[in-house]
């Protein structure tokens, strides 16, 4: 599972697609992923030409680490969006679990640090259970539920921290090591992110319950008639997303060492943006986690490249916005062209 560390790996997207021997329908997402890889490559190339230091070892490490959290969050978010839901609370969940795992390790420095990771992921999963239960069982729209829990989880975070913060000095070295060590030059958090992407991608592609998530997002009423346990699946997607946000929180704590109650504030929109730029349809049913991950990498690379290119940071936001509009416009164009091709195909086929 240790894929090439390069951010420009098209393999995850193309491998399963080829196995499916797909034509019309698999071509679209693949086109999106290739486009993203090209966009990232172009951006890196231009920035590198402008300032060769951009590809120094330290700088690449920073970019990878920066992309890690967003990528993990985008993978979880994509899983939820595919079911025609959305989870706006991920920034708060990340903050809560970062604080949870850090303060657990501060309180029990002698316990193995793996328990700290467990605590963080469990906190995230618990948040996912709350979201999932409200959405799937109480049938409240996800947008409203997670907008509410965004504030609730953040409030809990503030209450728990009550103004205090955890500093790197309070945390065991082994734990902080997660954020600092590398395997074959790749930072450990980036490796974890790659494993998450591949595992989630494989699950959504090759397992029944994974495919059912797409079915639910594509046509909820038909999914019910097909005997798919719709509520259970949506619940599961939220718990998965919560756990991943929890994992991201742990990695945040391990990387930065200092954690207070504001960690992750405002991240949710960037996460949704990464998924949308990555080709995950906001109304569910289509898109891949590979695309979402590449979207996250692209957004992080933009964040890193614009200062190097000495572009005013005011433009940074505008560029991200433009990118979202571009992505949506591209989707529309491809959809229209695909529809025309399919219709023409039908006429010949008959």
């Amino acid at each position: 599972m240790t894929e090439a560390p390069d951010t420009r790996t098209p393999q995850p997207g193309s491998a399963p697609a080829r196995r499916g021997n797909g034509r019309a329908n698999r071509r679209l997402p693949l086109a999106r992923e290739t486009g993203l890889v090209l966009a990232i490559a172009a951006l890196v190339a231009v920035t590198w030409l402008y300032n060769p230091l951009f590809l120094s070892e330290q700088s690449v490490r920073d970019i990878l680490l920066g992309a890690t959290l967003l990528t993990i969050l985008a993978v979880g978010q994509a899983t939820v969006i595919v079911t025609r839901s959305v989870d706006l609370s991920v920034g708060s969940v990340l903050g809560l679990s970062a604080f949870g795992s850090a303060s657990f390790l501060m309180a029990f420095p002698d316990l193995p640090f793996v328990l700290g990771i467990g605590v963080g992921v469990t906190v995230g999963a618990a948040c996912g259970v709350v979201n999932g239960a409200l959405v799937a069982v109480a049938r409240v729209p996800a947008l409203v539920v997670t907008l509410g829990t965004l504030y609730v989880f953040r409030g809990v975070d503030y209450w728990w921290a009550s103004g205090s913060r955890v500093d790197a000095a309070d945390l065991p070295e082994t734990f902080l090591g997660i954020g600092r060590q590398s395997v074959l030059g790749v930072p450990v958090p980036a490796l974890i992110a790659i494993v998450v992407v591949l595992a989630a991608g494989h699950y959504l592609r090759s397992y029944r319950s994974g495919r059912e998530l797409y079915a639910i997002g594509s046509q909820p009423a038909a999914a019910r008639l097909s005997g798919i346990p719709v509520d259970r699946r949506i619940f599961g997607a939220f718990v998965l997303n919560g756990s991943l946000a929890g994992l991201a929180g742990v990695l945040y704590a391990a990387r930065f060492g200092s954690v207070d109650a504001t960690v992750g504030t405002g991240m949710e929109l960037e996460v949704v943006a990464a998924a949308v730029v990555g080709g995950v349809a906001i109304f569910g049913g289509s898109g891949t986690v590979y695309g979402a991950a590449l979207g996250a990498v692209l957004l992080s690379t933009i964040d890193a490249a614009l200062p190097v290119l000495q572009i005013n940071q005011f433009w940074q936001q505008a560029v991200v916005g433009l990118l979202i509009l571009l992505a949506i416009g591209l989707d529309r164009l491809l959809a229209v062209r695909a529809a025309r091709r399919l219709r023409a195909g039908r006429h010949h086929g008959d």
């Binding site: 499916g20 329908n25 495919r211 059912e212 997002g217 046509q219 038909a222 798919i228 049913g285």
Partner: peptide, 29 residues
Amino acid sequence: PTLFPDLSVAENIFMGRQPLGRGRRIDYA
């Protein structure tokens, strides 16, 4: 008709009952 517009024709037919291969993975072929 109660189909899933985003999914392939084959997946529409076998949703929830896809033939499984090794490790309970869907056998697309």
